[in-house]
Simulated assay, not measured.
Amino acid sequence: MSPDSRNETIREARTADVSAERIRETVDQVLGSEVLPPIVQAGHPVLRQQAVPFTGQLDDAELGRLIDVMRRVMYMAPGVGLAAPQLGIPLQIAVLEDRFDVDPDVAAVRGREALPFFAVLNPRYEPLGTSRKAFYEGCLSLNGLQAAVLRPESVRLDYTALDGTAQQRNFTGWQARIVQHETDHLHGILYLDRAELRSLSSNAEYSARWAQPDITHARQELGFLPGESAG
Results as ranks from 00 to 15, higher is better:
D214M: 10
T183W: 03
E137P: 01
Q180E: 14
A211W: 09
G188W: 03
A208H: 05
L157Y: 05
A161P: 06
T130A: 12
A204T: 14
R219A: 15
H217G: 07
E137G: 03
R156P: 07
L192V: 14
G173H: 04
R198C: 09
L190E: 07
E153V: 03
A208L: 10
E182C: 12
E205K: 09
L192F: 13
A208Q: 13
V149Y: 06
L200C: 02
E137Y: 06
Q220A: 14
H181T: 06
R156K: 08
A204K: 11
Y191Q: 00
D184T: 04
Q168M: 14
E196C: 11
S207W: 02
D163H: 08
R151T: 09
W210H: 07
E137M: 05
G138V: 03
D193T: 02
P213V: 08
L142V: 15
G173R: 00
E182A: 09
V179Q: 01
A218R: 10
R156F: 05
H185P: 01
Q180F: 09
F171S: 03
V155L: 05
R177T: 12
D163R: 07
L145K: 13
H185R: 05
R177N: 05
Y159K: 05
R156I: 11
T172L: 00
A195W: 13
Q220R: 15
A161E: 10
V149M: 05
N203D: 12
H185T: 02
D214T: 05
R209W: 11
A204F: 10
L197R: 13
D158C: 04
